[in-house]
Design a protein around this nucleic acid. Structure first.
Length: 578
RNA sequence: GCCCAUGUAGCUCAGUUGGCAGAGCACGUCCUUGGUAAGGACGAGGUCAGCGGUUCGAUCCCGCUCAUGGGCUCCA
C-alpha cells in the first residue's frame, strides 16, 4: 500500500474515533482511502452536518496531537464477535472474512476497529487534514439496504500539500461547466421545458456548428454516409428491438394516439420517443437487399435521443434526458470486421486529438455470463477488438465479462487538462439486433448471411462532450472553436466606421467577429472581452485607422503589437487551420 | 428512486426575533471621446420557486410539490 493511502486510511480511523467520542450510539461500517482522500460510513441518530465539522476536526486534532500509536491486535473469530457486540454492520463485515484468514483489529487510543490495515505507526504522522462533505450512502452500495451517513475528508503530508490539493479543487470549481455555461451565456435548462433538456444559446450553437461541420467532413472523408431519421417510432418497433421489454423504465412514456382515417378510428398503437437510433438505421438497411459487394456500410447520424433518466442522476450537461449522439452503425461481413474496427479506433483517435485529447486509454469489455450470440462470433469479435488496440498501440485493460449482453466493446477514455478521466468513445458489437430484425446480406455463395453490426459513438453525446470541453478549456476555447474569435475595440466613436470595416473584412473571410460599439473607455472594453474569453482583441484608434492597421491583443499573452489589417487576417486564417 | 442541504431582481448575494423588499454587477437613458482589465449621473427591474395551512398580517413558522447542489444507486 502506498504511504499516502495508508495515511488516508489512518485518518479515516481518527475521524471515526473522533465521531465516537463526540456522539452517542455510533454504529461503524467501513472507512477506506479514496483517490483523493477518505471517508467513513456511520449510522448514528445525530444528523451530521457541516456545522459539526469544526467540532469533529478539533477532536481529531487532539488525537493527532496525542500521537497515539496504532496497535495491531489479532484475534479469534469468537473474540472478535464479542468485541463487536452492538455493531451490526461490523459483525456482518466480520462474517465476510473467509475462514482461516487472520482477523485483525487496530487500536488507537480507546478506539478499536476491525480492520485489515496497514496503518501509520501513530496518529502524529497525520500532518494536515480537513473534512469536506457529508452525504447519504447505501450500506454496501445496495439501494435495498439502509442509508448510512458518509463523512468525507482530505489529508496530506503537509499543510502546504493540503492547501495545494484544495486549490486544485477550487480550480475545478472555477471550470465547472454549469458555472461557465451561465457566465459565458452558453446554455440553459428551463424548468418550464423540463429538467435535463438543454437549450443551446447562440454562442454554444456556434461552437456546436463548428464541431458538427468538422465531424461531418471527417466522416465523409472516412467513407461514411449521413442519415437523418425520425424522433419517434411505433411500439412495434421497440418490441422488436427489445427496448420495451428490457429498458422501458428508461424510456419516456408512450404517446397514445387514436388515428382517425376514412374508415374511422383504428386501434391506437402508441409512439415512443427514441432512446437509440439503431432501429431506424436498421429500417434503412432493410429497405432493400444488400450483397456482400455492398458492404461495409458505414452510416452516421447526429441522432437526438431521449432517455428518461431517473430523478437525482441529472448533472448539468453531463447527464441529461435529451441528447444528440454522434452515432454510427457499421454493417459488414465477418472478414471485414477486423479492418473496420481498426479503422474506427484510428478514426476516433484522430477526432479526439483535434480537441486536445491526446492521452487515451482503452477498456476492452468481454463476454458476460448472460449473453446472446454464437460463441464463435464473440471470439472473433473480441479478437478483432483486441488486435485493433494492439495494432494502434493503445494501452488497454481487459474488463473480463464487462461487455453488454449483445456484444463485446471497446471504450476509450481521455484525460482532460486537469488530469480527470472521461469516457468518450465506444465501439460496440451487436449480435442481438441483427438477429431480432433478421438482417441478411447475400454472400458470394448466393446464400443469405447475417451481417456483423457495430455501433460506435466517438464524442458520445454532443451535450456531454460540450460540457467536458468547457471544463477542459476552462471556457477559453481555442481559436477554431471560439464562438467569437475576434472583437474589434474602437478607442473612440470616431473610429467606429473604421472598426466596422475591419470587422466586415474579417467576416467576409468567415472569421467570427464583432465590434464593441459602446462608449466605454478602452480599458473597460478590454476587460469585458477578456472576461468573455475572446481570443483576439483588435484595438483601433486614430493611428490605426490612419495606417489601415490594427493593434493586436491576445487573450493569453496580452499586447502583440500593431500590424496591417491584411496581415492580421492572414494570421487568423493560418491559426484557424492549424 | 434514496439521504442531506438549498431556492430572494438576469447574475452573485444581503435581509426580515412575522409588519411597505435591499446592494453590487448586468440592463436602459443621458453626459463623457478617454490608448490595453471597471468614467459619471439618473432610471427601470420582484407573485421572496409553486400550492396549501397557521396568523389580524407569511418572503420569514408548518406541510406538500417542483427544481437545483453534494453523495448513493442507475446509465441499453
Amino acid at each position: 500500500m502506498q504511504s499516502l493511502e495508508v495515511m488516508r486510511h489512518s485518518a479515516a480511523h481518527v475521524m471515526a474515533a473522533a465521531v465516537c467520542r463526540l456522539f452517542s450510539d455510533v454504529k461503524l461500517d467501513i472507512g477506506p482511502a479514496t483517490e483523493d482522500g477518505f471517508y467513513y460510513d456511520f449510522d448514528l441518530p445525530h444528523r451530521l452536518a457541516p456545522e459539526d465539522f469544526l467540532k469533529i476536526e478539533a477532536e481529531m486534532a487532539r488525537l493527532v496531537a496525542a500521537n497515539l500509536p496504532f496497535e495491531r491486535v489479532e484475534s479469534t473469530r469468537e473474540e472478535a464477535q464479542k468485541l463487536l457486540v452492538g455493531q451490526r454492520y461490523k459483525r456482518e463485515r466480520l462474517a465476510d472474512v473467509p475462514a482461516g484468514e487472520v482477523i485483525s483489529f487496530y487500536r488507537c487510543g480507546d478506539f478499536v476497529d476491525l480492520c485489515r490495515g496497514p496503518h501509520l505507526p501513530a496518529t502524529g504522522a497525520i500532518a494536515a487534514f480537513k473534512l469536506t462533505s457529508v452525504a447519504g450512502s447505501y450500506y454496501r452500495g445496495d439501494e435495498k439496504n439502509p442509508m448510512l451517513q458518509r463523512l468525507y475528508g482530505m489529508v496530506a503530508e503537509s499543510r502546504a500539500a493540503l492547501e495545494a490539493e484544495l486549490a486544485r479543487i477550487e480550480e475545478a470549481k472555477k471550470r465547472d461547466h454549469r458555472k461557465l455555461g451561465r457566465e459565458l451565456e452558453l446554455y440553459s435548462i428551463s424548468d418550464d421545458v423540463g429538467p435535463g433538456l438543454v437549450h443551446w444559446h447562440p454562442k454554444a450553437a456556434r461552437i456546436r456548428v463548428v464541431i458538427e461541420n468538422y465531424w461531418r467532413r471527417e466522416h465523409y472523408r472516412a467513407g461514411y454516409e449521413m442519415l437523418f431519421t425520425p424522433h419517434i417510432g411505433r411500439a412495434h418497433l421497440w418490441q422488436t428491438s427489445g427496448h420495451l421489454s428490457f429498458y422501458k423504465d428508461g424510456m419516456f412514456p408512450p404517446m397514445e394516439i387514436a388515428e382517425v382515417g376514412e374508415h374511422g378510428a383504428r386501434p391506437a398503437e402508441p409512439y415512443y420517443l427514441k432512446p437509440m437510433n439503431c432501429p431506424f438505421h436498421i429500417q434503412i438497411y432493410q429497405s432493400r437487399r444488400y450483397s456482400y459487394r455492398d458492404l461495409p456500410l458505414r452510416w452516421a447520424e447526429l441522432g437526438t435521443v431521449y432517455r428518461f433518466e431517473k430523478e437525482g442522476v441529472r448533472h448539468g450537461l453531463l447527464r441529461v434526458r435529451g441528447f444528440t449522439q454522434d452515432d454510427a452503425h457499421i454493417f459488414c461481413t465477418p472478414d471485414q470486421i477486423e479492418s473496420e474496427v481498426r479503422r474506427t479506433v484510428n478514426f476516433a483517435l484522430g477526432i479526439l486529438r483535434r480537441f486536445g485529447f491526446t492521452e487515451v486509454t482503452a477498456f476492452l469489455a468481454t463476454q458476460p455470463e448472460k449473453a446472446v450470440g454464437d460463441p464463435a462470433r464473440w471470439e472473433q469479435a473480441t479478437r478483432s477488438l483486441e488486435s485493433a488496440l494492439q495494432a494502434e498501440n493503445i494501452p488497454y485493460e481487459v474488463d473480463a465479462g464487462g461487455g453488454a449482453f449483445y456484444g463485446p466493446k471497446i471504450d476509450l477514455k481521455i484525460k482532460d487538462a486537469l488530469g480527470r478521466p472521461w469516457q468518450l468513445s465506444t465501439i460496440q458489437f451487436d449480435f442481438n439486433l441483427p438477429e431480432r430484425f433478421h438482417l441478411t446480406y447475400v454472400g458470394e455463395d448466393g446464400k443469405e448471411h447475417q451481417p456483423y453490426m457495430v455501433h460506435r459513438a466517438l464524442l458520445g453525446s454532443l451535450e456531454r462532450f460540450f460540457g467536458i470541453l468547457i471544463e477542459h478549456y476552462g471556457g477559453a476555447f481555442p481559436l477554431w472553436l471560439a464562438p467569437e474569435q475576434v472583437r474589434v475595440l474602437p478607442i473612440t466613436q470616431h473610429q467606429l466606421d473604421y472598426a466596422r470595416s475591419v470587422a466586415d473584412q474579417l467576416r467576409q473571410a468567415d472569421v467570427r467577429v464583432t465590434v464593441d460599439e459602446d462608449s466605454e473607455k478602452i480599458g473597460a472594453k478590454i476587460r469585458r472581452a477578456q472576461l468573455e474569453k475572446v481570443p483576439y482583441m483588435l484595438v483601433v484608434g486614430g493611428r490605426e485607422a490612419e495606417a489601415g492597421a490594427v493593434a493586436v491583443r491576445r487573450r493569453e499573452g496580452g499586447d502583440q503589437g500593431v500590424m496591417p489589417r491584411d496581415a492580421f487576417l492572414e494570421r487568423v486564417r493560418k491559426e484557424n487551420e492549424a
